[in-house]
Amino acid sequence: MTLGSGGSSVVVPRNFRLLEELERGEKGIGDGTVSYGMDDGDDIYMRSWTGTIIGPHNSVHEGRIYTLKLFCDKDYPEKPPTVRFHSRVNMTCVNHETGVVEPKKFGILANWQREYTMEDILTQLKKEMSAPHNRKLVQPPEGTFF
């Protein structure tokens, strides 16, 4: 996020940006089917996060609750976080062995911009679950993990 007018802009420091994201994640997002927060409130570097997605209606994911881990390295938000499903899921952008969302196969990570947030990632993953190429994929039994 940058602030300013004219030709000048101010880059919001990493920790301020993450505090904004934490506040938004804790308030709940939209219809409540996507949420996120920090793993450890004592982590002063704010690196490790947990996300939750409730599967979209009219898909093989409907009603399922998926948990993910997001890791914001020191380069975040200049570079995207690493994203890994903890819950087993069958999607074309997710490595079937590790649960890692593969950046080259997931547009928002492949074309990362500083303005994007963890909320954007989770929202896009939920949309991806409803995409035609993922809609009908057979899913692992509910409650299984990587």
Rank of each mutant, 00 (worst) to 15 (best):
T2Q: 15
T2L: 15
T2I: 14
L3P: 03
G4W: 04
S5Q: 09
S9H: 03
V10R: 00
V11F: 07
V12F: 00
R14I: 06
F16Q: 11
F16E: 12
E23P: 01
R24V: 04
R24Q: 12
E26D: 11
K27L: 11
K27M: 13
K27W: 04
G28N: 07
I29S: 02
G32F: 08
V34T: 14
S35N: 10
S35T: 13
S35G: 13
Y36I: 05
Y36P: 01
Y36H: 09
D39S: 14
D40K: 07
G41P: 06
D43S: 07
M46Q: 06
W49R: 01
W49N: 03
W49F: 09
T52R: 15
I53D: 04
I53G: 06
I53F: 07
G55K: 01
G55N: 02
N58V: 01
S59V: 05
E62L: 08
G63R: 14
R64S: 05
Y66D: 01
L70S: 02
C72W: 04
C72D: 01
D73E: 14
D75C: 09
D75Q: 10
Y76G: 00
Y76P: 00
Y76S: 01
P77V: 09
P77Y: 11
E78M: 09
P80T: 11
P81G: 09
P81S: 10
V83N: 06
V83I: 14
F85P: 09
R88P: 04
N90H: 15
N95C: 11
N95E: 08
E97W: 03
V100N: 00
E102M: 10
P103Y: 05
K104W: 03
K104D: 09
K104C: 05
K104R: 08
K105Q: 12
K105L: 15
F106L: 04
G107K: 12
G107Q: 15
I108F: 04
L109S: 00
A110T: 10
A110K: 15
W112S: 05
W112H: 11
Q113P: 00
R114D: 02
R114T: 03
R114G: 05
E115Y: 06
M118A: 07
E119H: 13
E119R: 13
E119T: 09
I121D: 07
I121S: 00
T123Y: 03
K126G: 01
K126S: 10
K127G: 04
K127C: 12
K127T: 12
E128C: 13
M129C: 08
S130Q: 06
S130K: 05
A131S: 15
P132Q: 08
H133S: 12
N134C: 08
N134G: 03
N134P: 05
L137D: 00
V138T: 13
P140W: 03
P140R: 09
T144V: 02
F145Q: 11
F146E: 03
